[in-house]
Amino acid sequence: MRPAGETGAAPTPARRDRTVVISSVASDAHTWNLVFLQLLIEELGYTVVNLGPCVPDDVLIDACRTIAPDLVVISSVNGHGWQDGLRLIKAFRAQESLADTPVVIGGKLGTTGLESAARTAELAEAGFDAVFRDGAQEVESFRDFAAALAVRAAT
């Protein structure tokens, strides 16, 4: 969703049969971020399965084993994205059937609001394909990531 009056080429839409699973980290009860992400990702042409807030790691992993999504998006608003994200991605990557599934995390990743580059790098090193901090510029970076993923899959 681009702000009114913004110009620029829209990303190439994905095929409708490509699926993205979105969820919060297990400790996060916020929902507005998930609704926003669902609308944004659907705008890019993906089918979205929104698992909602407070999804336990094992429930997310079981859902992804069943759905076999093209991308998993984890969102955090409560500030525990770094801590919960590390635990989640380790369990996720331990699943052979999910080892190559692209997984990203974004939002408020720490309780101070001043997440360090080291913590962001730690999430990437643990297995996230991309890490997006809180903010409008990061939303555009995520949009570009998702659009590029669709283009790679189409070729």
Results as ranks from 00 to 15, higher is better:
Val77Ile: 12
Leu88Tyr: 04
Asp134Met: 11
Ser141Pro: 00
Ala91Asn: 09
Gly52Tyr: 01
Gly107Asn: 07
Gln83Met: 09
Pro56Trp: 07
Ala91Glu: 12
Glu115Asn: 08
Ser23Gly: 08
Val48Trp: 08
Leu114Trp: 02
Thr120Gly: 04
Ala91Arg: 11
Leu114Thr: 05
Val49Pro: 04
Glu122Met: 10
Phe132Ile: 09
Phe128Lys: 04
Tyr46Met: 12
Gln38Ala: 13
Gln95Gly: 01
Leu86Asp: 06
Glu122Ala: 15
Thr112Lys: 02
Trp32Met: 15
Glu115Pro: 00
Glu96Leu: 06
Arg119Asn: 14
Phe128Glu: 02
Ser23Tyr: 07
Leu39Gln: 10
Ala130Gly: 04
Gly107Leu: 07
Gln38Arg: 15
Val49Asn: 10
Val55Thr: 15
Thr120Arg: 13
Ala68Lys: 15
Val35Asn: 11
Glu140Ser: 10
Asp58Cys: 05
Thr31Ser: 09
Asn33Tyr: 04
Leu98Arg: 05
Val72His: 05
Glu122Tyr: 01
Thr120Ser: 07
Gly106Trp: 06
Leu71Phe: 14
Ala29Val: 06
Pro53Gly: 12
Leu109Arg: 06
Ile89Met: 03
Asp144Phe: 02
Val48Asp: 06
Gly81Glu: 09
Leu44Ala: 14
Leu37His: 09
Asp70Glu: 13
Ala117Phe: 01
Arg133His: 03
Ala63Ile: 03
Ser116Val: 01
Gly79Val: 11
Pro53Glu: 12
Pro53Phe: 03
Leu44Arg: 11
Ile74Leu: 15
Leu44Pro: 08
His80Ala: 13
Phe132Leu: 09
Ala68Trp: 02
Ile74Arg: 07
Val73Glu: 07
Lys108Ala: 13
Phe36Ser: 08
Ala29Glu: 07
Thr47Gln: 14
Ser75Thr: 01
Glu122His: 05
Ala121Ser: 14
Phe128Gly: 00
Glu125Met: 05
Arg133Tyr: 00
Ile41Ser: 03
Asp58Glu: 15
Ser97Gly: 03
Thr112Pro: 01
Asp84Ala: 13
Gly106Gln: 09
Glu115Phe: 05
Val77Asp: 03
Ala26His: 10
Trp32Gly: 07
Ile67Asn: 04
Gly79Glu: 08
Gly85Phe: 01
Asp57Trp: 05
Asp144Glu: 14
Val139Tyr: 11
Ile74Phe: 05
Lys108Val: 14
Gln38Tyr: 03
Glu115Ala: 10
Gly45His: 12
Val103Phe: 05
Gln95Tyr: 01
Thr111Tyr: 00
Thr111Phe: 04
Ala118Asn: 08
Ile67Asp: 05
Gln38Thr: 12
Trp82Val: 10
Ser97Gln: 12
Arg133Trp: 01
Glu96Lys: 06
Leu88Asn: 06
Phe132Val: 10
Asp100Lys: 11
His80Pro: 01
Arg65Val: 15
Ala117Gln: 11
Val103Pro: 00
Asp144Tyr: 02
Val73Gly: 15
Ile74Asp: 04
Val103Asn: 01
Ile89Val: 15
Val55His: 09
Gly85Pro: 02
Ser75Leu: 03
Pro56Val: 10
Ile89Leu: 03
